[in-house]
Write a protein that binds this DNA or RNA. Sequence first.
DNA 1: ATCCTGTTCAAACGTTCGTTTGAATCATAC
DNA 2: GTATGATTCAAACGAACGTTTGAACAGGAT
Lengths: 230, 230
Amino acid sequence: MSEATAKQGPDTRARILNAAESLFMTHGFEATSMRMITGQAEVNLAAVNYHFGSKDALIQEVFRRRLTELNRDRLGALEAEEALANGAPLKPSKIVAAFFGVSLKMAADTEHGGATFMRLLGRTYTEPNEFVRQFLAEEYAEVVQRFMSALYRALPDVPREEILWRFHFMMGAMSYAIAGTDALQLFAGDFDDEDPTRLMPRLMSFLLGGLRAPLPEEVIESRAIRRDAA
Amino acid sequence: MSEATAKQGPDTRARILNAAESLFMTHGFEATSMRMITGQAEVNLAAVNYHFGSKDALIQEVFRRRLTELNRDRLGALEAEEALANGAPLKPSKIVAAFFGVSLKMAADTEHGGATFMRLLGRTYTEPNEFVRQFLAEEYAEVVQRFMSALYRALPDVPREEILWRFHFMMGAMSYAIAGTDALQLFAGDFDDEDPTRLMPRLMSFLLGGLRAPLPEEVIESRAIRRDAA
DNA sequence: ATCCTGTTCAAACGTTCGTTTGAATCATAC
DNA sequence: GTATGATTCAAACGAACGTTTGAACAGGAT
């Protein structure tokens, strides 16, 4: 049989994953039913359970296929910078650019659904669902550890706890910006769907400004006290 | 009948609102059923529909009762600063402190459920549910408009579009920090539930650093060009 | 005692959910 | 052709959902 006559479209698995990804983004996990997914994918209702086993397993697979690539790229960008640095500590801006630049690059990819996924991911960071969160943590474990080590080396004078907090804040700013829900309708009608490439320099300025901000007095004081005691 | 013998606990409405608030935070809106709510509140299943009409109306009321107070306090803090300034433009740090300081103050209130609500609110900013988002936008309309006006006055040389973006970023960093899901388990075990009052100076340093960061080159260039053309 | 209004209660409503089933259909190898 | 394993299909499953119902109960005024 000629390849062109294969029932319809690409294989069922991919059709399901793509439909699920966009529906999860629009409606959330719980509010997206199997019937909505199989309807949009134009496959039979039973196909999800046949190919993935369960709805939860489908959710995991939606994330796994993208996150594997995303985190590989992030590590790749970090390693490229480290290779250039020849063992010297990296500049913080390079580290931040490696992590968030790759994220924003995927968020700008509207061709292959990367943008859809990043918006979904941004929402999922605040998802209460326990098994989703555990899965996210596992997928991120290595990349978080590597980037944190790089930041610790880059900022030896800043307490590690503070670096953790600021990375946390940066993750929040990025997620929110990419998810782009604009729940408060700040951009009332004006810039509803901006070109996401223009987001990159804006976000990067903001993140680096936050990262480089002077430490709060409280922290400085406690460090001064510690230094005095020594 | 003596007041102490009234069936059980305080009135049914408040019991339902409190139970719903904490369950929504833990499980999300969709995953929280009426039976879970009435079970935790120890009231009859039909009580929600009797007192509120529907589940959606209950969700709205959960937010309304807190947001009304929160946004009143935010406006109050802003007006207090404006009164001190005597018509002069406010310093950006004062404006940011008015908005986010009030938020963090509520987030630190574990006594009356304010902390629970702020974590719920942080998650809700990324909630896809349409009617929730519309409701949020309405509740925030006035306070957003007032704070934006103040920021425009405070930063007359910064393009308004840039101010909008940075406020957007700040909202993201705060929401994420307060929701505190730590999906990536950055703080693996170490600081699971930190004292939220210590969050305040850290977040404020970060936010102000981001707000005051130099504009991205792209924006500066386009402004220079515009100035040249004039 | 009687009525009235507000509230609680157990039970049921119809709908939708995720999942399972067993037969039908396909592609391929013999 | 026929057998084999993978996939699709229509139909049904039990469970859980939000909501409605009508009776039971409460306290206060007449």
